[in-house]
Amino acid sequence: MPRRLRPVEPDFVATAPVRHVFERDMAAPPEAVYGALEDVPGWAEWFAQVSAARPVGAGAGRDITLTGGIRFRETVIAAKGPELYAYRVDVTNLPGVRAIAEEWRLTPAGGGTRVRWTFATDGTAAYRLAVKVARGGQARAFRDAVRALDRRLNA
């Protein structure tokens, strides 16, 4: 059953009870990486856990479906190309969650881009524990997604 989450703003990324931060370097320049982040349908082509993605609300939001059937209706809360792209989850079918925001920060690095992804969330105690346990899987998913995106942008 879909549930509406607490609306959060960009500062939630720094204050959330659970925060996972991952960084990787890419050969692609920040402008190209940022363009890929804004290309919502393209996420399904480089982020393996995303099975479907479509923009909604003239690009102000996103409908995301993950493999396994988890769905998110998201609102873009910061789009400052080519440095920052962030969104919050407004509605999901994931149990136990109260709030989610994700932030992608891009900085020039060695002729390419350093990508920092922050996953920030709050929920029930059981949900927070499950998210902490899932950190390793998130790290692998991020690593694989960044590699796939870099290959795609440098093809």
Results as ranks from 00 to 15, higher is better:
Met1Arg: 11
Arg3Asp: 05
Arg4Pro: 02
Pro7Glu: 08
Val8Arg: 06
Glu9Ala: 14
Glu9Leu: 11
Pro10Val: 07
Asp11Gln: 12
Phe12Leu: 08
Phe12Ser: 03
Val13Ser: 00
Ala14Ile: 00
Thr15Pro: 00
Thr15Val: 13
Ala16Lys: 02
Pro17Gln: 00
Pro17Lys: 03
Val21Trp: 01
Val21Lys: 05
Val21His: 00
Val21Glu: 11
Phe22Ser: 03
Glu23Phe: 00
Ala27Phe: 08
Ala32Leu: 13
Ala32Pro: 02
Ala32Met: 11
Val33Cys: 02
Tyr34Glu: 09
Gly35Pro: 11
Ala36Asn: 06
Ala36Lys: 04
Leu37Met: 10
Leu37Ala: 05
Glu38Ala: 15
Asp39Arg: 05
Val40Ser: 02
Val40Cys: 04
Val40Ile: 12
Pro41Ser: 05
Ala44Lys: 11
Glu45Cys: 06
Trp46Tyr: 11
Trp46Thr: 07
Phe47Ala: 15
Phe47Lys: 14
Ala52Thr: 04
Ala52Tyr: 06
Ala52Pro: 01
Ala52Trp: 02
Ala53Ser: 13
Arg54Gly: 14
Pro55Asn: 09
Pro55His: 09
Val56Gln: 13
Val56Ile: 15
Val56Met: 15
Gly57Asp: 15
Gly57Arg: 15
Gly57Trp: 12
Gly61Ala: 10
Thr65Glu: 15
Thr65Met: 05
Leu66Asp: 08
Leu66Trp: 10
Leu66Arg: 06
Leu66Lys: 08
Thr67Cys: 07
Gly68Glu: 07
Gly69Ser: 09
Gly69Met: 07
Gly69His: 12
Arg71Pro: 00
Arg71Cys: 00
Arg73Leu: 12
Glu74His: 04
Val76Lys: 14
Ile77Asn: 04
Ile77Tyr: 07
Ile77Trp: 03
Ala78Asn: 07
Ala78Met: 03
Gly81Thr: 09
Gly81Tyr: 06
Glu83Ala: 13
Leu84Asn: 03
Leu84Ile: 14
Ala86Leu: 05
Tyr87Leu: 10
Arg88Leu: 02
Val89Leu: 05
Val91Gln: 10
Val91Gly: 04
Val91Ile: 15
Asn93Lys: 06
Leu94Ala: 11
Leu94Asp: 07
Pro95Ser: 06
Gly96Gln: 02
Ala99Ile: 15
Ala99Cys: 14
Ile100Glu: 04
Glu102Arg: 13
Glu103His: 10
Trp104Leu: 08
Leu106Tyr: 13
Thr107Pro: 00
Pro108Val: 13
Pro108Trp: 09
Gly110Pro: 10
Gly111Cys: 15
Gly112Pro: 13
Gly112His: 13
Thr113Phe: 06
Thr113His: 11
Arg116Trp: 02
Arg116Ser: 14
Thr118Gln: 05
Phe119Glu: 06
Ala120Leu: 08
Thr121Phe: 10
Asp122Phe: 04
Gly123Arg: 01
Gly123Ala: 05
Thr124Lys: 08
Leu129Pro: 00
Leu129Thr: 14
Ala130Tyr: 12
Ala130Val: 10
Ala130Lys: 07
Val131Trp: 01
Lys132Asn: 05
Ala134Cys: 01
Arg135Cys: 02
Gly136Tyr: 07
Gly137Lys: 00
Gly137Arg: 01
Gln138Arg: 08
Arg140Tyr: 04
Ala141Val: 04
Ala141Trp: 00
Arg143Tyr: 00
Val146Ser: 06
Val146His: 05
Arg147Phe: 11
Arg147Cys: 01
Ala148Cys: 10
Ala148Ser: 15
Ala148Tyr: 06
Leu149Ile: 10
Leu149Phe: 02
Asp150Val: 12
Arg151Gln: 12
Arg152Leu: 12
Asn154Ser: 15
Asn154Pro: 04
Asn154Tyr: 06
